[in-house]
Design a protein around this nucleic acid. Sequence first.
DNA 1: TTGTAGGCGTTATCAC
DNA 2: GTGATAACGCCTACAA
Lengths: 330, 330
Amino acid sequence: MRKPTIQDVARLAGVGVGTVSRVLNNHTAVKEGTRDTVLKAMAQLDYTPNPHARRIAGGKSYTISVLLPVMTTEFYVRLLNGLEQAFQEARYDVAIFPLMDQSRLERYLGSHTLAYQADGLVMATYNLTQLFNEHRLKLNQPAVLVDAYGEGVDCAYMDNVAGGQLAGEYTARLEGPIHAMWVETELDQLFTTRVFEDRRRGFHSAVSAAGRQVEIELTTSFDAYAARTVAAGLLERTSFPCTVFASADLIAASLLDEVLARGLTPGQDVSIIGFDDQPWAEARGLTTLHQPVESMGYEAAGLLLNRLAGFKGAPRARKFTPSLVVRQTA
Amino acid sequence: MRKPTIQDVARLAGVGVGTVSRVLNNHTAVKEGTRDTVLKAMAQLDYTPNPHARRIAGGKSYTISVLLPVMTTEFYVRLLNGLEQAFQEARYDVAIFPLMDQSRLERYLGSHTLAYQADGLVMATYNLTQLFNEHRLKLNQPAVLVDAYGEGVDCAYMDNVAGGQLAGEYTARLEGPIHAMWVETELDQLFTTRVFEDRRRGFHSAVSAAGRQVEIELTTSFDAYAARTVAAGLLERTSFPCTVFASADLIAASLLDEVLARGLTPGQDVSIIGFDDQPWAEARGLTTLHQPVESMGYEAAGLLLNRLAGFKGAPRARKFTPSLVVRQTA
DNA sequence: TTGTAGGCGTTATCAC
DNA sequence: GTGATAACGCCTACAA
């Protein structure tokens, strides 16, 4: 059976196709009554608009490309949720393009059909605008950076320095030596993220400002297993009570595991502060920094949609600040 | 300036739009001469067909969804290259949908506009067909599994058992004790891969068949740092010369690092055999199992395109076998 | 406020 | 072989 079209809906509702199109696009006031009739007809027919027809009629693709690094899952899932919600509300489709390495990016840039495919571009975590210049490709769609900051582009980013500071201030008030576990990121020159660096900077500045200092600082790769080993090394060397700031929840969890395995009491012998507030953090009682990731995504999408709607003003930067969630581990 | 359309091309070439469309789609014999004229006109105007118009006229989306786990990059980049090449040749677009966790998958399944978006479905590494049943969703597009095997579906997969066997056979001929480093995969019930299990099975069977046995078997997470530690532990316990089969190049590289750091000679004191043949394997002289990943992707795409073209026969399964590449480390 | 008609860039179906 | 021309499903004037 053929999919119902706007014509079918119009016929059933006893109105013209124009009216149906208007309710579809929230256009100029449609009378409440007819609007309901149309909506009812759409529901009855289980009608879904054909995006391709819309694209060709509108001369736009109604699609946004999202360039997304393939990394830690949780953060990007939440980010995508925020982005997708905003775009969906505006009836835009999202085409996700995972950036696995430079060759993938080049493939994206070189693609012909993709040019048709996107009215706008979201770049997550990496500021790829410079790359467009290098390749002498001009960015002919509006673009927005999310989870990254850049000059001359709209962007929405997390203030990781502030997050680190919050952690530092809180930590400085706790008893015993202060330690930290950092994440080592091995990235080439193109794919570079300053997230962990920023957290570290903020943390140090706050601890110093409080007249204290960080004793043991260890670095681990972003892996639970590796972190566990590093955590064990840390616990060997410290005295108790002590406080450890782990710059990612994943790392904090490994530390927590090791603390428990040694029969120590979290929040008493060892205070632990994470970063991310992953979904499981609450269940584990982890004190950590919560990030408004969905909001950041939603806002970034808003900035782009705004451009798409014709806004011509100067680039805007929206900063989002993590908040400390105190639970049992510190 | 407006993008050139098929009309513009037709006008410039002095032919009808029908003819242009025919050369675009490699249709019924177009005279060689006119074909050239058209091609020339297209080049001159820098014409690119508008995919949206095509979709609406053709009643198809000319798009394939690729459901892709977010994991080790290199393998999937190559896989995508193979897939994309085949689909591109057939003028199909590829919509990549990274599967970060179950929620993402559900979002995909529940999406309305995406239903329009795909004429076919490629599922990489995971056999998600069962999930469609559980959700009482019927798969209304043809689907193909790649890097996975499943009953009742077309699929193209790597014979990891055979790969393990090749490694085992080769290893069994070398001097000294035989060890192995396996990869631990922590996956939930939905996202489950048998790759490493298969490699292990093949390896064991071949070693046994040769009347030998595996001495030390260690497991590591899929992380260079963690593997290095495990490798160190292995080297502490073994005698030399010995042979180590690492079930992934990433692991083999860490082992190689550790071997070198200890002043041992690879291929002499410690023979190392990896698995994957990553691009850097050659430079490091790593003996490993090469996988025809691109071919597998290309073939999987072919199976799907064949269905799209109307093929109704029984499900087909294409098996690809890794081959041993002997270099300096073993 | 609402209906009608023209157009978007293709493909497909005819005649020629 | 090739050129008209009618779809395809929607949006957007323009008219009513």
